[in-house]
Amino acid sequence: MSEESTLSFRGLCRYIHRLSKASKAGMKAALADCPKRHFPMLEGLLGCIRLHGQDGAVYISDLVQELHQPLPAISRTVRQMEQDGLVERFADPADRRKTLVRFTPKGYEACRQCEAALGDYFSCVMARLEPEQLAQMEALRGALMEAILAENAARTTKPKGEPNHDKDL
């Protein structure tokens, strides 16, 4: 990798880190009035129910797989959310050894409240950009994603030892 491309790569990594850090801080502030510390799990549970759910509930084991978290961490968070009235756990009627979890009405409302707060935050962020900047950002975002996906596909289809690209970054 040439020195110039190394600097570009480092700059991109620093930019992504700063973007992540700044957006997390803004999201944390936007969620200040929402149910405490549950948003990532609420979103994960909602997504898991959409993918694997049956009758609005999902197995704890599916949640563990989907969120890539250890069972004790998931159980602890689900227990806390249950105590806060956001979810309920119950035994699967077909197999009493398995535990299902589903949202309560309060949980669905908490999810809606968090999504609305984040939507408002990012609407305000985007309102600070000019229409031309938004169009450029959308085009570059798409181009970067396409380039990453193409490189990932190339790396998974090329024989081992064969170069992954024609030139340095």
Rank of each mutant, 00 (worst) to 15 (best):
residue 129 L to F: 03
residue 124 C to Q: 14
residue 141 R to N: 13
residue 117 A to I: 03
residue 159 P to T: 03
residue 133 Q to M: 10
residue 144 L to D: 15
residue 125 V to P: 00
residue 117 A to L: 04
residue 154 A to Y: 00
residue 130 E to C: 15
residue 132 E to F: 14
residue 156 T to F: 00
residue 126 M to G: 13
residue 136 Q to H: 08
residue 134 L to F: 04
residue 146 E to L: 15
residue 125 V to W: 00
residue 128 R to Q: 10
residue 130 E to G: 07
residue 144 L to R: 11
residue 136 Q to S: 08
residue 148 I to A: 15
residue 121 Y to T: 09
residue 152 N to R: 10
residue 158 K to R: 14
residue 128 R to F: 05
residue 123 S to G: 09
residue 158 K to I: 01
residue 141 R to E: 14
residue 133 Q to E: 11
residue 135 A to L: 13
residue 131 P to R: 12
residue 125 V to K: 03
residue 156 T to P: 00
residue 160 K to L: 14
residue 119 G to L: 02
residue 158 K to Y: 00
residue 146 E to D: 14
residue 131 P to V: 05
residue 151 E to Y: 03
residue 124 C to V: 14
residue 141 R to M: 14
residue 138 E to K: 06
residue 144 L to F: 09
residue 118 L to S: 05
residue 152 N to E: 07
residue 153 A to W: 01
residue 131 P to Y: 02
residue 148 I to W: 02
residue 127 A to P: 01
residue 151 E to T: 05
residue 155 R to Y: 02
residue 136 Q to Y: 10
residue 124 C to T: 12
residue 135 A to F: 13
residue 124 C to F: 10
residue 126 M to V: 15
residue 115 E to A: 12
residue 138 E to W: 10
residue 158 K to T: 00
residue 131 P to G: 02
residue 160 K to C: 08
residue 132 E to A: 14
residue 159 P to H: 05
residue 154 A to M: 06
residue 153 A to L: 09
residue 155 R to V: 07
residue 156 T to C: 01
residue 150 A to D: 00
residue 160 K to F: 01
residue 155 R to L: 04
residue 136 Q to C: 15
residue 122 F to K: 06
residue 117 A to F: 01
residue 134 L to R: 10
residue 150 A to F: 01
residue 141 R to V: 11
